[in-house]
Design a binder for these strands. Structure first.
Lengths: 144, 144
DNA sequence: GTATACTCCGGTTCTCCACTGGGGTTTGCA
DNA sequence: TGCAAACCCCAGTGGAGAACCGGAGTATAC
């Protein structure tokens, strides 16, 4: 029941990209990685998945990098996590021992999953950025 | 984001034990296992953890077996899953790269976790048993 | 006292996560 | 044109955990 570092890294990276979105200037892997303490060769793969998932765009060549594919308030955390974690292959016809008990348990588990996904769907990257900014304000207040 | 078979097996086993609780008669591993299609040597380990977690009691020797440690409505699904999955070692002082971004993400993730745990806490074994019974009634209606 | 259960300990196979590395290809710029 | 800076793709590795299997021991009812 904990966040994989895959997803955490992806969220951190997108959080770095968010403020750069309006300018249209791409950010390089190395910069994001060093900023957030992420192994860069690993982050590369995560960004590739995010690109295939249509969440970021890449610019190749010198002075290339990554930028968000759309506005930060149009990307929910659910978009990110589901893209990176790759769920919804749910309907594979693996015989899941279809006793009445198993069905009841499955039912309640989808309820659990929906509760979790509901939280993820209500937050966007924009929300995270604003929370961070608010947090930093508080830090400054305490610092003074 | 899916239920491990560990937890599913444990829930199925406890679901089998629930109706036998009032009689005080223990159920054997073999019976539960064959009833629910669970590898018995594996179920044995799960029941051992449930015992150590105080959810079931064991009776050794001939005509021994397992029975619930308390009433089915006093055991929440959260009790079961947390016992079997063993979470809440949360507070290990592993340095979790304490950037402001990381803190914001951690915050929203605890919200996700709490949403999921909330669902698990509101259901008891008794609820599952009743749901299963209701489900079986429906099945019979359709069968006629 | 013996068959029937649980108990404890160990090993095995498999999959996935979290990386690391070695090539490529595309692009800006001198 | 050359070349370095970036992305792109594929492959492998090490460790951890999941999902088991097996055997030797121990308690208990009959």
């Amino acid at each position: 029941m904990d966040l994989s570092s895959k997803s955490e890294y992806a969220l951190l990276a997108l959080l770095e990209l968010s403020p750069h979105y309006p300018s249209g200037e791409p950010l390089q892997i190395r910069q994001i990685a060093s900023q957030q303490n992420i192994p860069d060769r690993y982050l590369e793969q995560l960004l590739a998945t995010l690109r295939r998932g249509g969440l970021v765009k890449s610019q190749r060549g010198a002075r290339g990098g990554y930028l968000l594919a759309r506005d930060p308030w149009k990307i929910t955390l659910y978009d990110v996590v589901s893209c990176i974690e790759g769920f919804e292959p749910q309907a594979d016809p693996a015989q899941v021992s279809d006793t009445p008990e198993a069905r009841v348990i499955q039912g309640m588990w989808t309820e659990v999953r929906q509760a979790a996904e509901g939280v993820l769907q209500k937050y966007t990257l924009q929300d995270l950025v604003e929370k961070r900014n608010a947090q930093q304000q508080v830090d400054i207040m305490y610092y003074i």
